[in-house]
Design a protein around this nucleic acid. Structure first.
Lengths: 212, 212
DNA sequence: TGTACATCAGTGAACGCGCGTTCACTGATGTAC
DNA sequence: TGTACATCAGTGAACGCGCGTTCACTGATGTAC
């Protein structure tokens, strides 16, 4: 749906900033965050190679914009999936896991910009805030689940957040690389993550030992 | 300890292939797999930009060599850590987890070549075999642990392998990116993975519910 | 031990390429009056 | 409603750069006799 050359009418593009972000998304999806070039994005958007500089300081800034925007949408998705833990924390949490994978799957370019592009946290205004909000969403869910664990056996909420994050991130990236294609696995990332989370929650005593 | 310009004696290098691989490692560690250039590796090794072509078909082949070599050493490390499950499966498995992280931490360039460089499984002879051997090592450990789980509650061994792989890979990559620097976490990757594995094993019923 | 010669592993110059970025410019748009 | 003008968002040509790769070459090495 990105604006293409053919859509251009006059001298002005009208929505070049958004068109460039879309083009960048497309290119990163194809070739990875490092392989993306400003020149090619400009070509895709149907403008001269100098045009992007009206909207972005340099190549890096477009990656940063993608990452910030990605984290913001990511946080929204995770929060929406959590839905304040309704109808119960475990169900809601499973939904969050699926939302995590869905995001990585549906917008791999954003996911790469967020986690693999090496965009600097310090040089990109809003990135720290946006990524923090996403992690906070995971932490909130973790905390709700931990409320069911007896206090003396309750791990720190941040630690649990990392466990979940690592499991989700690992699943997402292993399936994104065709790494898991190695064995031609007849299994989906959703199944891996969901079953992994169930075992994990059982280990915390949140699910009964005999549940399936 | 890679061979440097100053070490060169005469017209012939003597060990250029290895020197180039080391140079590539160094560069990938600094700038990532995509940022690595053949020309710079040659410079680092103290030879002309044409010299590498005596040892590698093209840029891609050097990445492939790094990945194959990486997977072979990775498999060796994992097997060594497992030590046939001695003294007991849980202890040995914890050791495997630590070995996984140690590899990713100590040789990030190899890890990137293996998992992030997009080296083709089909175009790189030996890669499928080498990576398969590494995963087999994880699978062997998983199988030994699963032997302790009542049959009717035993997940498929491959599924458990993926859980462990995903958790390890996620932990390794989140800590490698400074992603986890986001919150300035006062916690090590070892702690995250080890505690995560313990919870997971408890969830399988391999560790008692009240163990710490 | 010495010599001729094949082979090996380098050199260095050159190529075409596409990139990021800058620059002076210009066409289109919107606003004040 | 019309006009002057400031501003905005493009152009296109140019730059310097470093890359991957090829080529004809040459110095060093090792081996047959």
């Amino acid at each position: 749906m990105s604006k293409r050359k053919s859509d251009r009418t006059g001298y002005h593009h009208g929505n070049l900033r958004a068109a460039l972000l879309n083009a960048a998304r497309e290119l990163i999806e194809e070739k990875g965050a490092e392989g993306f070039t400003l020149a090619e994005a400009a070509r895709l958007a149907g403008v001269s190679p100098a045009a992007p500089y009206r909207h972005f300081k340099d190549r890096n800034e477009i990656l940063g914009a993608l990452a910030v925007d990605g984290f913001e949408r990511f946080a929204v998705e995770l929060e929406a999936a959590w839905q304040q833990g309704r109808p119960d924390a475990v169900t809601a949490f499973t939904r969050v896991g699926r939302a995590y994978l869905a995001f990585a799957h549906d917008d791999p370019a954003a996911y790469k910009a967020m986690f693999e592009a090496g965009v600097s946290l310090d040089d990109t205004p809003g990135l720290r805030t946006a990524s923090g909000r996403a992690f906070d969403s995971l932490r909130t869910s973790a905390a709700a689940l931990l409320a069911r664990v007896p206090e003396d056996r309750r791990p720190p909420v941040d630690l649990m957040g990392f466990h979940i994050w690592a499991l989700s991130h690992g699943t997402a990236t292993l399936f994104a690389e065709r790494s898991l294609g190695r064995g031609r696995v007849p299994i989906s990332s959703d199944e891996v993550l969901e079953s992994g989370i169930l075992v994990y929650l059982r280990g915390l005593g949140i699910l009964p030992a005999d549940s399936d």
